[in-house]
Design a protein around this nucleic acid. Structure first.
Lengths: 337, 337
DNA sequence: TTGTAAGCGTTATCAC
DNA sequence: GTGATAACGCTTACAA
C-alpha cells in the first residue's frame, strides 16, 4: 500500500502538503493540489486510517452496545445508526450486552478499549450510578431508551408512560372495561413506565385497579403464554389484554387460542413496540409504535453534533409513541365471553 | 490516559519490557512481571489499541458486510460472529450493502479503508469476477451463502439445492402432487439452487414440470401475495405451495386466507430459512432450517484460523439444511379443494 | 532476561 | 503556501 510519503515524492512536494490536500484544512495552491491528486490517483493511494487516528487522536469509530444483536428490535436501530454514520465517514463497532450487568460493563470496557470516539448505549442492567460515573471519564456517550436524571442531556428516550396510556385507551375506547395487563420485568424502567400509563388510563376511566389483573412477564413469548394462563386462572373475566411488548402479545395470542379463545372475537389484544413480528401474527397485531429507527438516527446525530462538531444538527431527545391499529382489537360490542 | 511509557517509569523497567508483559510473547522474569503489573494497575493503564495496530499492522478488527441490518436474518448471523470474535479479543465493524452492486462495492471499500484484518461478506449483487479480483488484493475475506468456484476455499455456503429438494419432499410425502412454487429472484444463485432442488424432487416423483406453477418473487412478503394471485389466476389446482423463503411464505399465507383458502386445510405451505417470523405466523410455518448462526460462527473461525493463526480450529464450509416441521403443512388426505 | 532504538503512517506546529 | 520535524503510543529487531 502506498503511503503519504510516496505520494509526496511522486508529486514533488512535502509530506505536509499531501496531508493538507487530503484534509482540506489549509489553503493549497490549485496547481500543487492537482499534482498531488494526480499522484494519489496514480498510486491508488488510500490513507491509513489507523495512522490518522493515532496522529489526530480521533478514531472516527463509534461503539454501539445493544442487548441482543438478533431479535426484531435492535436490527432496526443499528441499521439507522449505521446509515447515518456511514454518510459521515464514521464507522460503527458493535457489541452485545445481553441485559446482564457484568456483560454490559464488559461490553462498555471492550468498546472503550477500542478507542471509540463515542458510545451509543442501550443498556438495561447497569445502574444509574455506573452511568453517572462513566460520564466523568473521558468518553462521551448517549443512552437510548433510558432516562437518567443526572445526565438528562445524554438520554434519548420514549415516553413509555404515554405508550401504556395509549394502549389502554385503545381498548377502553372500544368499550372494553375488563382488562388484563401483561407487563415486562418491573425492575426495568420502561416496563414500569408503561404500566404506570396503564394505571393512569384506568383511573381516568374510573376503573378500579386490581392487582390480580397484572402479570409480570419477561418480555418474551413465554411471558405472554404464562400471562394468559395466570389471568385465566384468576377466574376474572376480561375481554381486553394489554401486553407490554409484541413478543409477549404473540405468545399470549397463541396460548389464548390454545385455550379455546378466538382472537379478536373473544379477546382483544394489543402489543407494544411495533416490531416486525407484529405484522406477521394472525390476526395482525394492533400495537404501539416505538420509533426505534428514528431514535437510533437521533443518537447518531447527537454524536455527530457533540463529538464531531456538526453544530447545525437539530436534536430531539424525547420521542412519542403512537397507536398502530391493525386487526387484533375489536369493539366490545362484538365480543362475547 | 496513562501510556506504556509512564508504566515503564513507575515500574522501573524499559518500554520493551512492559510491552512484553502485555503480549506474553517473550519470557519475562516473574518478579519484574509483578512489578509491571502492579504499575499498570496503579495507573489504570489500558493499552491504546490504535497505537498497537499501527505498530503491529494488525487492527484486530473484522469488517462485516450484510445486505440489511434490520430484518430477521442477518441479526442472527452478526450475533454469532460478534460472540465468536469477542472472546478472541477482536472486534467487528459493520456495513450494509442493500443488495445493490454499487452499495456493496462501496461497503467493501469502506471496510477496506478501515484497515480491517479480514472481511466477512454476505454480498449478492457484486459479480464473481469482482470477488476474484478482490482476492488478488491484500485483504482476505470469506463469503457467506455464496459459491464462487475460483475461490472455493473462501466460501461458506448452504446446500440450497438440497433445501429445495427437501421442502418439496415434505409436501410430496404428505401426498400432495399438485404444487406451486414461489421462487426468489432467479438471478440470485441461492434462489436458483433452491428451485433446482424443487425440480429434481418433482422429477424423481414422476411429476412433470410445469412452468405455469412457478412464480418468480422478490424474497419479500409482496412476492408471496403476488405469487398466490398469480397461481390462482392460472386456473390450476394446487394443494401444496413451496416458498423460497419465509417472508414470501408469510405473504402467501395472508393472501391465500384473504382469497378464502384455509391454511393448512385447503393449502399446505412450506417456507425456507426458519427465521424468527416462521414461528409467529398462524399456523406456525413448516420450513427449512438455514443454520445461519452456525455459518456465521464458522466464518468467524475461518478468519481466526487463517488470519490470526488459530490453527487448531476445524472448519466446515458447506452446511446442510434440514426440515422443521410445524403446522402449516398437512397430508393431502385431509385436504379438499 | 532486559534495554535501546528504529519504525508504523499520519497530523500539526513551527518556521520560512 | 509550503517544508521540516516532532509528536502519537506502541511493537520488534538487535544488542547487551
Amino acid at each position: 500500500m502506498a503511503t503519504i510519503y510516496e505520494v509526496s515524492k511522486l508529486a514533488g512536494v512535502s509530506l505536509a502538503t499531501v496531508s493538507r490536500v487530503m484534509n482540506k484544512n489549509t489553503p493549497v495552491r490549485e496547481s500543487t493540489r492537482k499534482k498531488v491528486e494526480a499522484a494519489m490517483a496514480e498510486l491508488g493511494y488510500r490513507p491509513n486510517s489507523i495512522a490518522q487516528s493515532l496522529a489526530s487522536s480521533r478514531s472516527n469509530s463509534i461503539g454501539i452496545l445493544v442487548s441482543e444483536l438478533h431479535g426484531p428490535f435492535y436490527g432496526a436501530m443499528i441499521s439507522s445508526i449505521e446509515a447515518e454514520f456511514r454518510t459521515a465517514g464514521k464507522h460503527v463497532i458493535i457489541a452485545a450486552g445481553h441485559s446482564e450487568e457484568a456483560t454490559e460493563r464488559d461490553g462498555i470496557e471492550f468498546l472503550l478499549s477500542r478507542n471509540c470516539d463515542a458510545l451509543i448505549l442501550h443498556v438495561e442492567a447497569v445502574s444509574d450510578e455506573y452511568l453517572v460515573q462513566l460520564k466523568a471519564k473521558e468518553i462521551p456517550f448517549v443512552l437510548i431508551n433510558r432516562q437518567v436524571p443526572a445526565i438528562e442531556g445524554h438520554c434519548i428516550s420514549l415516553n413509555n408512560k404515554l405508550g401504556g396510556y395509549l394502549a389502554t385507551q385503545v381498548l377502553l375506547k372500544q368499550g372494553h372495561r375488563e382488562l388484563g395487563y401483561i407487563s415486562g420485568p418491573l425492575w426495568k424502567a420502561d416496563a414500569q413506565d408503561r404500566y404506570r400509563g396503564h394505571k393512569l388510563a384506568l383511573q381516568e376511566a374510573g376503573i378500579d385497579w386490581d392487582e390480580r389483573r397484572l402479570f409480570e412477564g419477561d418480555f418474551h413469548e413465554s411471558g405472554g403464554s404464562d400471562g394468559i394462563k395466570y389471568l385465566l386462572g384468576q377466574g376474572l373475566a376480561f375481554t381486553g389484554l394489554i401486553c407490554a411488548n409484541d413478543e409477549m402479545a404473540s405468545g399470549a395470542m397463541t396460548e389464548a387460542r390454545e385455550q379455546g379463545l378466538s382472537i379478536p372475537q373473544q379477546l382483544s389484544i394489543i402489543g407494544f413496540d411495533n416490531v416486525m413480528l407484529s405484522h406477521y401474527t394472525y390476526p395482525k397485531l394492533t400495537t404501539i409504535d416505538y420509533p426505534i429507527a428514528a431514535m437510533g438516527q437521533m443518537a447518531a446525530r447527537w454524536v455527530l453534533k457533540h463529538i464531531y462538531q456538526q453544530q447545525s444538527l437539530q436534536l430531539q431527545l424525547v420521542f412519542e409513541p403512537k397507536v398502530i391499529e391493525r386487526d387484533s382489537c375489536v369493539s366490545q360490542s362484538s365480543t362475547a365471553r
